[in-house]
Amino acid sequence: MVSASSWVRPATRTDQIENLVSGVGKCFNRNVGLLEDYLYLQIRTEQYDCLANLAILKLYQFNPDLYNPDVVINILIKALTSSPFPDFNLCISLLDDRPPSVNPDEPDPLPALLPLITTLHSLLQQCRFPAFWQLYNSDKAESLRDNYTVECVGFEDAVRDVVIRAVIPAFKRIGSDRLSSYLYLSGDDLIDYVGKLGWTIDQEGVVVIPPNADNTIVSTVVQENVQLPQLTKIITHSQNA
């Protein structure tokens, strides 16, 4: 069971930011700086606060002058690794189509990167993890890696968290090769990673995932449960008849 309460309010969110996210404070442009600083803090410290980042996009939506493509790209990179939760599309929903940049001195990197980031997201969404790593490590993604994800501390581990979230409910045991292709880890790295998760590797080299509510399946028969109120009408009628 994953609770959404830490998504609604992460422990790392300060009261000041909380006021901006939940209060009316978010309507004021001068606060965009605070929220942008908070985003860069998330980038550096492996934190994540979707609602605060959505508040930035909201300000951009209403004030095209504030728009900063680097911030948008960082927000999308953060949201990418929250799959299977819908954060990424929630962010995209707030990105209205905008006219092409008018200032040739400040080219907007977003239009060029957006299709790539969207494809990466859809690969994660479809659990096509080996394909994700292949695209992510290809030349096509060089500018994304060199300019953005390199700054985002723990990005690759965050992607691995997406993998783990998908593997835990679906598998009792998973072959090392398969897991290795999902996590883009091999040899000792893989063994270390699996160890950190508290998982074990059996004699056949198959990784064993501890039982949890989702990978323990049981057939059940749901029996009906009749409540008295359902019978009120009938009983009343027989009284009156």
Partner: peptide
């Protein structure tokens, strides 16, 4: 519901018992 044990897929279904009351 289902779970994959290495290469075997195990399936479980929740069935609803016949509803007489409704």
């Amino acid at each position: 519901d289902f779970v994959i044990d290495d290469n075997m897929v195990h399936i479980a279904e929740s069935t609803v018992g016949r509803r007489y009351a409704g």
